[in-house]
Design a protein around this nucleic acid. Structure first.
Lengths: 212, 212
DNA sequence: TAGATTGTTAATCGATTAACAATC
DNA sequence: TAGATTGTTAATCGATTAACAATC
């Protein structure tokens, strides 16, 4: 009988809370804490303490009664669970306003994400260096993605180009797509798509304002 | 006994799917459809047909056996449920790279959101007109937000300024904050905060790639 | 009519919360 | 020791899915 090779899949809600815990834990470490308790973290984040405790337990770190969890270990465990323990190289396609903003965003260091390569079909843009990242023509995609062993493709192209660019990225070998367009992408099995859809977020905001 | 004045609160997962249904329905209307069925919509979006049917039912539109739902009515009902039937004016604070990108994003028309005013504390930026929106100094916030009856504040400032700007927006009278910073904002009761946290989205993507 | 579709009611599933024992 | 905290087990809650009746 073969053992499970892959790490266990955690519940999506838990995964979504991990980056928030992570920030909090890091902040506490920075202010000198060696142990952090679920109660304090939960309070700061407005969550139930039991929920936080369960989430943290899933990262595989044991806490100590009266003390809490060892801060560094917890930090490392969460980073590991998210796959943020090594630098992940990503390629961004579509260097428009949003694409440039993402290229210049320094916050991705927190996630060990490095947008090392960018592509644009506009010959006036390809060739430029935007925010320290060189923009390449689409023809070079397959070669560069293989060369740099890039796993994640970031889609910041106009709607109409989205599926075509997704296809190119997949063909070049990326296994994850971070989709900032509003298109429902079709991808082969084994490729993961994560959509960032501002309309969904705004919908919750507007509806909540409305029904208050 | 007093009747409930506010529209019923719908489940958040349903609300988050509404913009996706809306796009699909609009597309079908554009291609001449007068009726749309839950089965077809669900198939296109990769959802269960019963789920789509329940979601659509919550918008309050009755479908007809063998036909489906009247497309226009359904469109209107969803728009209404989201509060997108009238233009909502929003103010954006922090005209950096992300702020500018949002100012220039044409997709908000779909949601009837108009970012009509922007603010920046940098005197080199305040006074400029960026992507057709005039940027004002922070001192003018309270006056302008009241004058234009602005309900939503969009926060695209650096971390360190986030809470202070949120306070100013709330003081000026906005009831909803669309928070693009990674800070956990503290707001008084009655003010709604919706966070757009890329780290959460990336966490799901990285973890899913990892555990595949 | 037959069959596609809606609408409703019940069952399942998973996440959150509650209760409480264990430990330092 | 007393009390704060973790960890576990059970209960609750809500969303999704399944089963099936109603309708055109």
């Amino acid at each position: 009988m073969k053992l499970e090779e892959h790490p266990t899949t955690l519940p999506v809600p838990t995964i979504r809370r991990y980056p928030i815990y992570l920030r909090e834990i890091r902040e506490m470490i920075d202010s000198g804490a060696h142990f952090v308790s679920s109660a304090i973290i939960a309070k700061k984040l407005g969550l139930d303490a039991v929920l936080a405790r369960k989430d943290l337990a899933m990262a595989g770190v044991c806490g100590r009664p009266r003390r809490g969890y060892p801060a560094r270990d917890l930090e490392k465990a969460i980073i590991k669970a998210l796959g943020w323990d090594n630098v992940t190289d990503a390629a961004l396609v579509g260097v428009g306003a949003l694409g440039s903003a993402l290229l210049g965003y320094t916050g991705f260091e927190e996630q060990n994400l490095s947008i090392s390569t960018a592509f644009d079909c506009n010959p006036a843009i390809a060739g430029l260096t935007i925010r320290n990242v060189k923009v390449h023509p689409m023809e070079d995609m397959q070669r560069l993605i293989k060369e740099h062993n890039i796993r994640i493709g970031i889609l910041t192209v106009p709607k109409c180009a989205a599926q075509k660019c997704a296809d190119m990225l997949v063909k070049s070998g990326v296994t994850g797509l971070w989709n900032f367009t509003n298109i429902q992408l079709a991808v082969p099995n084994g490729v993961v798509v994560q959509n960032v859809d501002l309309a969904q977020s705004l919908a919750v905001l507007s509806h909540t304002i409305l029904s208050r």
